[in-house]
Every structure is written in C-alpha cells, then in structure tokens.
Design a binder for these strands. Structure first.
Lengths: 224, 224
DNA sequence: CCGTTAAGTGAGTGATTACTCACTTAACAG
DNA sequence: CTGTTAAGTGAGTAATCACTCACTTAACGG
C-alpha cells in the first residue's frame, strides 16, 4: 500500500491563500501522520520533511493538535465527502431497474477513482487511524455518512417494488457500514488480506451487497 | 463504548505461571493501550495503574514494544481466534438448509458473546488500533482469518445447490471482510453510528449478508 | 529612504520519554 | 546461620518532546 498524495485536492479552495511553505507543512504532516500515526510523528520530523523551521509550524497552528484537526477538516471536506457524494445526483436522476444496477453505477465509479491517482489514500488513512481516539472526529464522519442521500435512491427502488420492505434507515446503515467497513479493512487494516484481488472481485462484491449469496434470496421479509 | 476486561480469558493458560504483579502489568497495559493507543501510553502510566515500580515492567519485557507484542499474541490466541472458531465444528457437523440458517447459528452465537461480559472489547480494540502501523500484526490476523474452516461449510451448501456458484475463496473473503469490517467499524471506528441499534438489527444484518436486499436476488451468476 | 507588517528562523526550555542499575526483600536449600 | 536465586524497587540518565521568543528577512506604501 504505497503512500501517494494528490495535494491540490486535499487543500481544496485554500490552495490560493497559503504560501508554499504552509502547503509544504500540510503535505509533510499528511504523509507522516498517515505513515506513523499522530502521536508517533514529531513536529521536528514534519519541519524537516517540509524543509521548514520548526517555529514556522507554530506560526499558523498554536498546537500540534490544531494542525492535525485542520488537516482532518480538509480531508473530510475535500476528499472523503466528495468520494461518497460525487455523481450521486446524476445517479439519483436516473431510474434504475434494481439496486444492483444502482450500486454498479455508484461503486464502479468509485473503484476507478481509487485506482487512479486521484484519491489520496494517505489522506483517508490519516483520518481513519485516529478515529478510535477522537469521539469528535467519529461524530463528524458519522454525521457525514448519515446525510448521504442514499435513502432517496432506496425509496425510489422500494416504491417500484424492486427492493425488500425494510426501513430505509436500516438499509442505508447496512449498505454504508458494509461499504465503509470494506474500505477501512482493505485500505487501512488488512491490505494484504485483499492482496491477490482479481480485477472482477469488485463485481462479486457488488452482487454480494445487492443480491446476496443465497440462491433462494427471494426477498422474504425478515422475521423478528 | 465502555472498557471492560475479562482477564482470565486474556491470560489464558499463562495465568498460573505469572505473579500477581505480572498479571497487573498486563491488565494495566491492556486498558491503557486500548484507551489511548500504543505510543500515547507511557511505561510510567502502566506502572502507576498496575501499582508497580517502573523497573518491574522491564524485568520481564526488554522493551515497551516487547510488552505490546506479548499482549497482542495473548489477545489473538485467547480472544480473537476463539471468537471466530468456537462452536464452528458443531455447526459444521450439522447440515444447514441455507447459508442464512448457518450464519444465523454462527452470528447469533457471537452476538451473545459480545453482549455478555465474556468478550473483552478492550483487547480487540488494542489490536485493531495498531494494525495500520504493524505489517507483521496484519499478517498474523490475516493468516488467522484465512485458516478459518468457513470454506468447508460453504462447499457443503454449494454441493446441495443452496449456494451461488462462485469460487469458495472469493465467498469466504466476502463474508469474512463483511463481518470483520462490520465489527471493526462498530467496535473501534464509529461506535455511535450504530448507537441506536435495535435488538433485531442483527437479524436484518444476517439476512443482508445471507440473502441480500434485492427482491429478485435469484442467484444469477456474476458476469465479468 | 523610512516604517510597518507579515513570514520565517533556530537556539533554547522545561517536561516527559523509555530504559538502567545498584539495591532491597524474601524464600528456600544445605 | 549462610549462600543463592528470583522478584521487585525507584532514583537516575540521555534523548526526545511540544512549544517559545528574540530575531532576521523581504515586501510594500507613502
């Protein structure tokens, strides 16, 4: 799992407001936080990698924590949220014949994004790795996932009778936790568990999420 | 997500070979590693919580890293592996009519385990949180997941025509990554995302994994 | 040419870090 | 009573940590 960064994307609109040294600090901090984690990277290391004096970091960020939080805000806003959101309206505008067709459109789009150098994997790593220790960060990410307009697509399919008759929020959580769990496991936790991954492995995965494995997956309701 | 520990289970068979102080060190280290992460917890803190001199730690472990690795070995062997393995033979011995029935048996069993105080959540957290920084730990966990005899159950079901005709290793990986991803997200990453979880939410989840959401999930093969 | 302001510098500071070592204590065999 | 061994101690150490501050540099308006 190589560490590469597409920084224009991480910085977003702030790109113009920052000096070259400020951008270098953010870039270096991103790389090191992703590689070694927050506590294990020192401000001295960041300064060295960015070719900047250590004091320069603290001219803009009062503490190391403030620097980290500034970076996570950038990553969530410019990387993670767009990753889930882009193209969702276009997909919503269309009418799909099945959940599988809809997910096919959504997920293959994202797989391509991941395989291209567009998506800064390090940026995602950096955020995910710190999630366990930062409830506020957890809330931010959870809120982002909950506001995705997936429910509207599901409702649409449900009204057409193409979808099982479960509560919309339950289905959204099932799908999102499945996708997020898969991504976290693959990118951050156990990359080599998916090392010998076929190109069409994702096809299996989409079908797995959309249609399940069971041959008699005939959509009977869930008894409880 | 409260932190509780069932220590007889973590220590396993080594319980007898260790003095009270040695056990206290492992217990304190577990709690602090889980709460704050490896780098953020100092040996001084561990000694204080264990009510032990700092030097006592280094009588048994040459370095802080050695202590951590000893603990992860204990957790993987005595907690994580049993979590996936226990009762799997009994389940394998029976013949299930569907994947859903098999998963129902396996997963409800584990949910009960999690809800009881039997499963030391902190022990799992401690390992998962360090996974991103330790490739060797990743390999250990991945190897453990791959050697699970899930494929035999799947083969059994496939021969009965109850299961879609995909490669066994692909299905094992799909199921395992789904379960592991779900657990990691729920326990370590985004606990509040699943905060208002119904008791029967797991029923939806089992059906989701086994049968999918699609009403026409009729088991057509995956084209690629 | 001067005055102001913002960006950047790097030696320095006190606190904290993982780890050491000379030492005490206690149990037990001969 | 003596000698040996293992368990445990805690003051001490060099290194590293996040952060500070007096300072330089450069750009720009009047």
């Amino acid at each position: 799992m190589q560490i590469e960064i597409n920084f224009e994307k991480v910085l977003g609109e702030k790109q113009k407001d920052l000096t070259e040294k400020q951008k270098a600090i953010i870039k270096a901090a991103c790389l090191l936080f992703a590689q070694k984690g927050y506590t294990a990277t020192s401000t001295r290391e960041i300064a060295q990698l960015a070719q900047v004096a250590e004091g320069t970091i603290f001219k803009n960020y009062a503490t190391k924590d403030e620097l980290f939080l500034a970076i996570t805000d950038l990553v969530i806003e410019n990387i993670i949220e767009p990753f889930f959101m882009t193209g969702l309206e276009e997909i919503f505008a269309q009418t799909y014949n099945s959940l599988e067709e809809a997910l096919q459109a959504i997920i293959t789009n994202r797989i391509q994004l991941m395989q291209s150098e567009e998506l800064p994997v390090a940026a995602i790593k950096l955020v995910v790795q710190e999630l366990p220790y930062r409830p506020q960060l957890q809330s931010k990410v959870a809120a982002m996932l909950e506001k995705l307009p997936l429910q509207e697509i599901l409702k649409n399919l449900q009204e057409q009778g193409k979808l099982i008759d479960w509560p919309l929020d339950v289905m959204q959580k099932l799908i999102m936790s499945s996708i997020v769990g898969f991504l976290i496991t693959k990118i951050v936790m156990l990359p080599q568990f998916f090392a010998h991954e076929l190109p069409d492995y994702t096809q299996y995965w989409i079908h797995f999420i959309a249609g399940g494995l069971s041959k008699q997956g005939d959509g009977e309701k869930c008894e409880n």
